[in-house]
């Protein structure tokens, strides 16, 4: 076999591998969407769930998922941003930095059920926050921090050092260089990172089962006063999210249409994640053009 044939065979193999990965995803998406498609009606998306009769929806769970995601991101983003900036711009390469990095990596590979139980004992029981959106958001923050910090650090590291040197040469302090030069340049890729991690947070179940709880009390969508217990905005109410709902109806659900509801919810969940991905791409590209005044 000469080198030319080997090259051709290898190329074919690479095409086959790439094709099979695409096929796997196509199969997964197709399977989830097709089995859930019949359920996807406006009514399903907006009505509350029913415990033991058919015809329940996922309205409250869907709202809870988004609200929890928003709160978790509000808490974790500033912390991750600060940590990412320090790690990439200030930290020296010494043993302390190594330990911190290792700690972050370990936190990111920790099973989320351990994070959930930690959150349960600390927030729900010890701090007496009860099963609430706030406990859930804090647990999700723990789960999200390492991923987000790593992705922000990566975005900052991708900005060439020339930019930093230019900023310093103009007499800006390091902090000013970061806030006025580096961060704007990194915004598109930071945003992509944030939205992708939002997708992961959106689908997380194990960390929430013991923190934000598995019940979705009826909400009064006319009442936006966050101090009222039936208000959607109250952060101290228990809140079952979509991913937890899927887990629950498959394990203990006794409604007659449990499998259809589960398939429909999975489809909604995957569609939301898909949406996050497209949004990330589109926004990232747009912002990049805007902030760097690149043409085309």
């Amino acid at each position: 076999m000469n080198a030319k044939t080997a090259d051709k065979i290898a190329t074919a193999v690479f095409y086959a591998i790439a094709g099979s990965v695409i096929l796997i995803l196509a199969f997964l998406l197709g399977y989830i969407l097709i089995s859930g498609f019949p359920k996807l009606t406006w009514q399903f998306l907006t009505t509350p769930a029913k415990a033991f009769t058919a015809g329940g929806g996922i309205g409250i769970q869907l709202f809870n998922s988004f609200y929890l995601l928003l709160l978790a991101m509000l808490i974790s983003f500033p912390i991750a941003l600060g940590a990412g900036i320090y790690l990439n711009e200030y930290a020296k390469q010494n043993w302390l930095t190594t330990i911190i990095r290792t700690a972050i990596e370990i936190l990111s590979s920790l099973p989320s059920v351990v994070v959930g139980l930690f959150g349960f004992l600390l927030f729900v029981v010890h701090m007496k926050m009860g099963f609430s959106i706030l406990s859930g958001a804090l647990a999700l923050t723990f789960f999200n921090l390492p991923l987000l910090t790593r992705s922000i650090e990566g975005s900052l590291a991708a900005i060439p050092n020339l930019q930093r040197e230019a900023g310093l040469a103009l007499g800006l302090s390091r902090w000013e260089t970061v806030t006025h030069v580096i961060l704007p340049a990194a915004v598109p890729s930071i945003l992509t990172g944030v939205i992708l991690s939002a997708g992961r947070v959106f689908g997380e179940a194990a960390a929430l089962i013991y923190t934000s709880g598995q019940s979705a009390p009826a909400l009064n969508f006319g009442d936006w006063n966050p101090f009222n217990i039936s208000s959607p905005l109250n952060p101290m109410r228990p809140a079952e999210t979509l991913a937890v709902h899927i887990w629950k109806i498959n394990s203990e659900g006794i409604m007659p249409d449990a499998s259809a509801v589960s398939a429909g919810s999975s489809a909604v969940l995957v569609l939301a994640v898909l949406l996050f991905n497209f949004l990330a791409r589109w926004l990232g590209r747009r912002l990049y053009h805007r902030l760097t005044s690149a043409t085309n």
Partner: peptide, 22 residues
């Protein structure tokens, strides 16, 4: 407990029963 809690809240306005598994 969930179903009973829902009815209970219906009968007693402003009272909520949080039901968790585990």
């Amino acid at each position: 407990v969930e179903a009973a809690g829902e009815q209970f809240s219906g009968d007693h306005l402003g009272v909520f029963i949080n039901v968790q598994g585990g």
